[in-house]
């Protein structure tokens, strides 16, 4: 029995939801970034699954997956740099205490 496209989509959706949960509930900023990484991975699974099952001869899905890598790398680089800078100034990475922008 072959693995269907839907299965990959549902798996990716589950991964996305787990990542989303992590992003919304964790207090540590680094943990939030980890959640975002999970979500990006879910996106990549979707892209490659669509590529595999709908047009394996074209390069579209693969190219997009490669661009997602670039975006993920840029996101993680800048995001973690921000966290490090915040920690240096405020000695915390707890998102509930980083409320500078609130007022």
């Amino acid at each position: 029995m072959m693995v269907q496209l839907e299965w990959y989509l549902i798996l990716a959706a589950a991964l996305f939801c787990v990542g989303l949960y992590g992003v919304l509930v964790r207090r540590n900023a680094v943990a939030i970034l980890m959640g975002i990484e999970l979500m990006l991975n879910a996106v990549n699974i979707n892209l490659l699954a669509f590529w595999r099952f709908t047009e394996p001869a074209a390069a579209t899905g693969q190219a997009f997956a490669a661009f997602v890598y670039a975006v993920a790398a840029a996101e993680v680089a800048v995001g973690l740099a921000l966290i490090v800078a915040i920690y240096r100034n405020r000695q915390t990475v707890d998102m509930d205490q980083i409320n500078l922008l609130k007022w």
Binding site: R27, V30, V84
Partner: peptide, 26 residues
């Protein structure tokens, strides 16, 4: 990316000691 995250953890090592709640209230 894994290495970068571990580095960031080490740079913000205070988090290893703090006993704050893991998740927020929502």
């Amino acid at each position: 990316i894994g290495v970068l995250i571990i580095y960031a953890l080490m740079l913000t090592r205070g988090v290893m000691r703090q006993q704050v709640p893991l998740v927020n209230d929502q």
